[in-house]
C-alpha cells in the first residue's frame, strides 16, 4: 500500500478488481472490515472507509448479522464505469508518451495491430 491515493480508496479498488475478475462473484460475501485490516495491516477504520465507499457506490450491501455482499449487477456496473475511465487512465498517458517519442496516433495504431498479431 504505497501509492499516493488515500488507503481506503486503494482498498475499495482491490475489492472492485476482485468483482471484475470474478474472484468475488455476485451474491458472495466480501471480506469484513476486520479481515481487511488484518490482511493489509492497516487501521480497521481505514478498511471500514473503503467498504463504506463501495456501499455508497452500490457495489456492496449489508446483510444484517452476516456481512457485506456483492449485489447482482455489480460487475456490469463496474465494467461500464471502468470503460468510461479507460480513455483517461490508459489512452491519454499512452499518447503522451508516444508524442514524446515522436510517434503519432497512426504509429500507435499500427503498433497495436502488430502487437495483437504477434500474440
Amino acid at each position: 500500500m504505497d501509492d499516493a491515493r488515500p488507503l481506503f480508496q486503494q482498498i475499495a479498488e482491490q475489492i472492485e478488481d476482485s468483482i471484475i475478475d470474478g474472484s468475488l462473484p455476485e451474491e458472495s460475501r466480501a471480506p469484513s472490515t476486520n479481515e481487511l485490516a488484518a490482511f493489509h495491516r492497516i487501521n480497521p477504520a481505514t478498511a471500514a472507509n473503503g467498504i463504506n465507499q463501495l456501499v455508497a457506490d452500490g457495489l456492496l450491501y449489508k446483510k444484517r448479522g452476516v456481512g457485506m455482499f456483492v449485489p447482482a449487477g455489480a460487475r456490469e456496473k463496474l465494467v461500464e464505469r471502468r470503460q468510461e475511465a479507460f480513455g483517461r487512465s490508459y489512452i491519454a498517458p499512452l499518447l503522451a508518451e508516444a508524442r514524446r517519442l515522436e510517434m503519432d496516433a497512426e504509429d500507435v495504431k499500427k503498433m497495436i495491430d502488430a502487437w495483437r498479431d504477434d500474440q
Binding site: 472490515t33 476486520n34 485490516a37 488484518a38 495491516r41 492497516i42 487501521n43 480497521p44
Partner: peptide, 9 residues
C-alpha cells in the same frame, strides 16, 4: 502489530 490490529478491531 498484528495482535494490536486484530485485538483493537
Amino acid at each position: 502489530y498484528d495482535h494490536l490490529i486484530a485485538d483493537y478491531a
